[in-house]
């Protein structure tokens, strides 16, 4: 779907933040982008969206060279939700805000209305359609920004740290929307520092570091290998750390607390030499 070929980019001429970066994204992937603060995660997504122009190299969408064509052209295919959603909001109501994108793309009135309605429904904002967006909480503003992107029916949706500032419930809700869209065929790319999200949702992980992609692969590979996670600005999720700490006792590396619980329950009962509820504590 989207290809980055030998991309080099720097904000000043003499320092290249990204060097000779190659990336191929296929339709239907759920990609999580991680990496240290300042490693170039946001830069990478902005290059994909046409918000930044590579110093050298090419961006291809469905095989067509779209390098330097700008975000307005890419907006037909790629939705982008900024880290700070305030900066992309300027209309009087949530409904109008979400309608802006389809209007700019030349959707007819009925098609715009339908797209807005669907986007608001998916993000659970229907009741807030008439509200002034800038007075909303950060979590809700984030959802308005996502609805705005969805209304343009993108094939690829890029979200830059969409869950920062959101509580655990809102985070789950947002990810369930992303999962649903992904099942319907939308390609999702999510930038996050949250290792829980990374382990639970990513079909592919990209770690941006060392001026390029320090890692490109599956979650299992990332946490089962001997990679310099701390150097990359990542941390081992708690359950991975515990299961690896118990590996000498034959415990497999897993990601979910419930799975680890199931695996160690029999070992604990055997170790205690007691049946449940009869420990000597």
């Amino acid at each position: 779907m989207l290809d980055l070929q030998r991309i080099c980019f720097g904000y000043s001429n003499n320092i290249m933040l990204l060097k000779e970066l190659n990336l191929h994204i296929s339709a239907g992937e759920f990609i999580v982008v991680a990496g240290r603060n300042g490693s170039g995660k946001t830069t990478l997504t902005k290059l994909m969206m046409g918000l930044l122009k590579p110093t050298t190299g090419h961006v291809l969408f469905e095989g067509e060279d779209v390098t330097g064509q700008g975000a307005d052209r890419m907006a037909r295919h790629v939705g982008y939700v900024f880290q700070n959603p305030d900066r992309q909001m300027f209309r009087d109501t949530v409904g109008q805000e979400v309608a802006y994108g389809p209007e700019q793309l030349g959707f007819e009135t009925a098609a715009t209305a339908a797209a807005v309605e669907e986007a608001l429904r998916l993000t659970d904002l229907t009741d807030l359609a008439g509200v002034y967006p800038r007075t909303l909480s950060k979590g809700r503003k984030q959802r308005v920004a996502i609805a705005s992107a969805l209304a343009m029916k993108p094939r690829l949706l890029i979200l830059d740290e969409p869950t920062s500032g959101q509580d655990a419930g809102q985070r789950e809700q947002l990810l369930s929307v992303m999962t649903r869209l992904n099942r319907q065929g939308m390609t999702i790319m999510l930038v996050t520092h949250d290792m829980e999200i990374l382990t639970r949702y990513a079909s592919r992980v990209l770690v941006v570091g060392d001026a390029g992609l320090a890692f490109d692969g599956m979650v299992e590979t990332l946490f089962n290998g001997d990679y310099p996670l701390a150097q990359w600005g990542l941390s081992e999720p708690a359950i991975v750390k515990i299961s690896r700490g118990l590996s000498a006792l034959g415990v497999a590396t897993v990601f979910a607390a419930e799975e680890l619980q199931k695996n160690i329950q029999p070992l604990l009962r055997k170790g205690d030499g007691h049946e449940p509820h009869s420990t000597a504590h």
Partner: peptide, 23 residues
């Protein structure tokens, strides 16, 4: 109450205790 905010570490601990592997 607000169980989605329980850290995975404590979901494991409390889960084990509830299944009789505690305290």
């Amino acid at each position: 109450v607000f169980t989605e905010a329980l850290p995975p570490l404590w979901r494991l601990k409390l889960g084990l205790e509830e299944s009789g592997c505690g305290p």
